[in-house]
Design a protein around this nucleic acid. Structure first.
Lengths: 113, 113
DNA sequence: AGGTTAAACAACCGAAAGGTTGATAAATGA
DNA sequence: TCATTTATCAACCTTTCGGTTGTTTAACCT
């Protein structure tokens, strides 16, 4: 399954921040509201809200509605897409040879993703 | 076992760019010089050189010296560190439905997986 | 030595990231 | 109805990113 380049851009970028990774870690234990997610951090709730928007645009999390709250849920499928991308190079490298790569990735030679 | 936060910052950030991911893809087929890496792109060689510096600081690649050339090599160990980070949350999530979700949403129906 | 090739260094620019404060919207509940 | 809770929207500011062009450094080859 070929993941779109923009999707990878936004997902990797979203994970390139300790606050957002911490939010992911928290959500792996179950959904949480913005207030709950903001609590451990020194920064403002608005800042955390922005971080959640970044994660949402990257489709790493989704949100539902419940009264005034908007619980945030982890989307493990996106995380899998990232490991899938990484693994294709991590694993290919094991064999170290171009021929193996040709077998695994019968594609153009210019490093398309 | 906990990878340093700064290392994750720089590594995920480095992968959040299509040019740099393409360079990783190319290097998975073996080392290459800056000129070779720059060739497929429209941007200047200096720009590619900067991209390589970003990858190098993230320790996703290393460089050796060979006459005037400075071949760039992939560092698969860093890629593994990233999948290791992702996997700890991707896998934990499998069994998670209770906790806050059950408390906050007695009539849950999200079907996001 | 002089010329060529490979690549980094440096200064600069526009756009985007990450933060702030203040105002607003939406649903709840007294 | 009206205050409260929850969270977003809107400006704004500063720093970083990704790109440019121009200038050096470093090693090679006659």
């Amino acid at each position: 399954m070929e993941t779109d380049a923009r999707a990878l851009d936004s997902a990797f970028m979203a994970l390139a921040d300790p606050v957002r990774r911490s939010i992911i870690a928290r959500l792996s234990r179950g959904p949480a509201t913005v207030n709950e997610l903001a609590e451990p951090f020194e920064i403002s709730k608005q800042a955390v809200s922005k971080h959640i928007q970044v994660l949402e645009q990257a489709e790493l999390v989704t949100r539902t509605r419940e009264a005034q709250r908007r619980p945030v849920h982890l989307n493990p499928a996106r995380l899998e897409a990232l490991t899938a991308w990484i693994d294709q190079y991590r694993l290919v490298r094991e064999g170290q040879f171009r021929s193996l790569d040709a077998v695994l990735r019968p594609r153009a030679a210019d490093g398309s993703e």
